[in-house]
């Protein structure tokens, strides 16, 4: 079981490395963003696997947290790219 999780970890790690390449390479900002979002998701996987490995449940909160903040991050970045400002004072003006 542990070995299996280890293998999974390595695959996830490699995937993250691949996404990291995309983050650095670009070419456009949205590309990086998408890759980053992917990394966030994989981070969740990684931590989930880690908590099996470490045999502790205290990281589970971290999982949900990453999910939440990666969503917030994604939304704000895309709003920024799209409009240059992320919080409008009054919509539809």
């Amino acid at each position: 079981m542990t070995i299996f999780i280890w293998i999974c970890m390595i695959i996830v790690g490699l995937s993250m490395a691949g996404l990291m390449y995309r983050v650095f390479k670009g070419p456009s900002v949205p590309d990086r963003l998408i890759a980053l979002d992917g990394i966030g998701v994989m981070l969740i996987s990684a931590i989930a696997l880690l908590s099996i490995l470490f045999d502790t449940r205290f990281y589970i909160d971290v999982i949900l947290l990453i999910a939440i903040i990666s969503f917030i991050g994604t939304v704000s970045f895309s709003k920024f790219i799209e409009r240059g400002e992320i919080i409008e004072r009054e919509r539809n003006r």
Partner: peptide, 16 residues
């Protein structure tokens, strides 16, 4: 949230 994120990012990319 994942689909929403994807949607927003694509749209952002398009608008940008």
């Amino acid at each position: 949230t994942s689909p929403i994120g994807g949607h927003l990012m694509s749209r952002a990319a398009y608008m940008a």
